[in-house]
Design a protein around this nucleic acid. Structure first.
Length: 758
DNA sequence: GCAAGGTC
């Protein structure tokens, strides 16, 4: 008998193989694919894995205007970057030939069920599905895996159908509506703008638009804060107990009354409070912390965490768990980490704080019968994950990490160490004061015991002195102020707070949220580094879609998907009925959009152009970001082109910042590698001493016959045509010497107003 | 070209 076990990903195939037999042999197929061979209960078993989805939906007929008939094809056919999938499919094909029975051991959720089903159906065929059984486990521990193997269940075909329906629904809504939007701009303006909409990205964008509207309609209200600066103590300020006083007259009365009066201490209270150690990271938690501590985008953090995981330094990153089960052998991990001089002192201290002996010292102690085998216990969070524990270091110390990887590794590892530590203690002092019967108070805090904070060096700790005062003391008021302030609109989201909001609303999954946000940036719907601002284009996308496809903007589509998928799983409705309904709904939307496509296209394109404006031009026009198809790069040009020929080049990967140059008022830009990011004025010549320098003429342009000028750009000197931007001839000085005799056949191109057809 | 979902 030969049995084949298919797993979702290489890391689970290893765990499953090792759990089933301690003598499992690791084998290699081709360059990358590992599989396991073992014997159990007289059966020869091969354990191999997929790498997530191996098959993807694609239109049956690519030439149709809209896509309603779809088929599954290998992932590498639709995504060129997924070449490695080929080898995994070849391995599955090879090992399934000799298999008599098939075991489906992918994660026990809808996507996992579909991954294993498709992997076998489209390599082996129906034979595999007819001879399949399913392992159902909630963690990848030996105990769970063995139990799941002993108690295999039937494959739930309703769960499969539900997964298929999810893919098809997302595709026919997302791809077709995206196509319709793009088509409307093409019809109205003959321009190509990559526009998109989808079940997750559109409600996510709508959340941002909603916040933007709240900010716009916000009416600030004035209020007054009355503060007393106390004499004799540095920065000791007492606030009036009423806090924000919205009544100007009242504020004025209090202020007048308390002017030049002393404060009497009514009450002083010092109390201690504990702050528990932090909880282990799940992916969202790590992304949020890395954003707050290092300013990393969630996507960047995710990529780094994935690379630390593939190198074996940290555990699987796409988890929602905030728990570290004992089965991970947590003390062994701490022991391994102790080999690093960076972590050792912290780990030693954590054992001391808990009054527990280090494991290697336990043996002798146990012999003496003292301090029985107490173990370190992690502080844990509430969230769990069916397949993976919280993110933690494996104990394998990294050999070589770049700066970014090192930061994330240390963040994960120090967090891991600190969850075993003890509470920090904060002493807080509250003093109530009386100034001519008006109540004032101040609070001060200091850390009397650092506890875990000692082992988590990513928090700012501010200790405030406690003034030595007691009840009945008279304090001189150095200065009384009544500051007029305004209520502030709600804050814009940043990438970390948006991820949290998406989590809360259950939009997207832990693995996809960072990509969704990155996509909104890529489409130019949103911008901003610290705070996310919605561009005019993003606002119009939401406006347009809420008119023609309001289910998409208000999260209703996601909710109705969930209801339908549940019904498919409970056999209350057939997959094809759900899909047919969706097709009808999409067709209605597409009809409406089609009828109004010129209006929609014009509005969206105008909004796009407005989004790209970065500044006013000296001629009165607007300077905006434009795309040059010839140079395949962005540049800045004036809306009055061709009458105004002001242009600025943008270095690759540059972003235009909100801040302005002190000297010339143009926007600042940021450019350069991620490690060595620089800021400069958009005008590369700004700030140079020789402001009225005229470029040297060194010959005639081979393309248009105008003067060729020696120019100085951000990357050094180069040769450019004086008729730029009409003529885009450029060359390095060396190349020009070689090529001046030859003529370049290409025509000079018109200024690209946007990302035009190419 | 287009979605969202897995994964390296």
């Amino acid at each position: 008998m030969n049995e084949l076990i298919i797993c979702e990903k290489p890391s689970s195939s290893e765990k499953i193989a090792k759990a089933l037999s301690s003598k499992a042999n690791k084998m290699k197929y081709g360059k990358k694919v590992f599989y396991w061979e073992l014997e159990k209960d007289g059966k020869d078993i091969t354990v191999l894995s997929a790498v997530g989805h191996l098959f993807s939906l694609t239109p049956k007929n690519q030439r149709e205007r809209f896509y309603f008939d779809l088929k599954w094809v290998p992932l590498y056919e639709t995504d060129k970057s997924k070449g490695y999938v080929k080898e995994y499919l070849a391995a599955i094909k090879k090992f399934t030939k000799k298999a008599d029975t098939f075991v489906h051991a992918c994660d026990y959720d809808i996507e996992g069920t579909l991954i294993g089903y498709n992997a076998l159906l489209y390599t082996v065929g129906q034979k595999a599905i007819d001879n399949i059984s399913r392992m159902k486990f909630s963690t990848l521990t030996k105990k769970d895996i063995l139990a799941a193997y002993e108690n295999k269940i039937d494959l739930d075909l309703n769960q499969v159908d539900s997964g298929i329906a999810r893919h098809i629904l997302d595709f026919i809504f997302g791809v077709n509506i995206s196509k319709a939007l793009t088509q409307s701009v093409r019809s109205a303006k003959k321009k190509f703008l990559k526009l998109s909409a989808g079940r997750v990205q559109t409600p996510s964008l709508a959340i941002l638009v909603e916040r933007e509207k709240e900010i716009q309609k916000f009416v600030p209200e004035p209020f007054w804060l009355i503060k007393a600066l106390l004499d004799g103590y540095k920065d000791l300020i007492a606030d009036h107990v009423d806090g924000k006083i919205f009544d100007k007259k009242k504020a004025h009365e209090i202020y007048e009354k308390c002017q030049n009066q002393d404060a009497t201490v009514d009450k002083v209270k010092v109390s201690a409070s504990k702050r528990k150690p932090p909880i282990p990271f799940n992916l969202g938690g790590l992304q949020s912390e890395a954003y707050n501590v290092f300013g990393y985008s969630p996507k960047k953090t995710q990529t780094i965490a994935q690379s630390l995981y593939t190198n074996g330094y940290t555990s699987y990153p796409r988890t929602s768990s905030q728990k570290l089960p004992e089965t991970l052998e947590l003390e062994d991990i701490l022991d391994d980490l102790s080999k690093s001089s960076l972590f050792k002192p912290h780990i030693d201290e954590v054992y001391e704080e808990n009054n527990i002996d280090k494991p290697n010292e336990k043996a002798s102690e146990e012999a003496n019968g003292s301090k029985a085998s107490k173990k370190l216990k992690p502080n844990q969070g509430k969230k769990d994950d069916p397949a993976h524990p919280a993110i933690h270091p494996t104990g394998i110390l990294p050999k070589k990490l770049d700066d970014d990887e090192n930061k994330i590794y240390q963040l994960i590892t120090f967090r891991f160490i600190s969850v075993f530590s003890v509470d920090a203690v904060i002493d807080s002092m509250r003093a109530d004061l009386n100034i001519v019967n008006e109540k004032f108070f101040f609070r001060r805090k200091q850390y009397s015991f650092l506890g875990w904070l000692k082992h988590y060096p990513f928090r700012k700790l501010e200790n405030e002195d406690f003034p030595e005062i007691k009840k009945g003391d008279i304090l001189k008021v150095k200065k009384l102020t009544s500051d007029e302030k305004e209520t502030k609109p709600p804050a814009r989201y940043n990438q970390a707070s948006l991820i949290k909001e998406l989590e809360k609303r259950e939009l997207g999954t832990k693995a996809t949220r960072a990509d969704i946000i990155a996509k909104l940036f890529d489409r130019d719907y949103i911008s901003g580094t610290k705070q996310i601002e919605v561009n005019s284009l993003g606002e119009h996308i939401v406006d347009t879609l809420s008119e023609y496809a309001s289910d998409l903007t208000n999260e209703e589509l996601t909710r109705s998907f969930e209801r339908d998928l549940d019904k498919i799983m409970d056999e209350k409705i057939k997959k094809y009925q759900v899909i047919d309904n969706a097709k009808e709904e999409v067709k209605l939307i597409l009809n409406d959009v089609d009828k109004n496509q010129i209006k929609i296209g014009e509005e969206l394109f105008d909004a796009y152009q407005e989004s790209m404006i970065i500044s006013k031009c000296a001629c009165g026009g607007n300077l905006s970001i434009k795309y040059s198809p010839r140079f395949k790069s962005n540049f800045i040009g004036c809306s009055n082109f061709p009458d105004c020929d002001v242009t600025y080049s943008l270095p690759r990967g540059a972003t235009v910042l909100k801040s302005r140059c002190d000297k010339c008022g143009l926007p600042m830009i940021s450019f350069g590698s991620a490690k060595n990011r620089q800021r400069a004025c958009l005008d590369p010549n700004c700030g140079k001493e020789n402001r009225d320098y005229s470029p040297e003429v060194i010959g005639k342009c081979p393309e248009c016959g105008n003067d060729l000028l020696k120019r100085s750009g951000r990357y050094g000197e180069f040769i450019g045509c004086s008729n730029f931007p009409r003529c885009k001839f450029t060359s390095s000085i060396e190349d020009l010497e070689k090529n001046l005799s030859k003529t370049d056949g290409s025509k000079s191109e018109q200024n690209a107003d946007s990302k035009t057809e190419n």
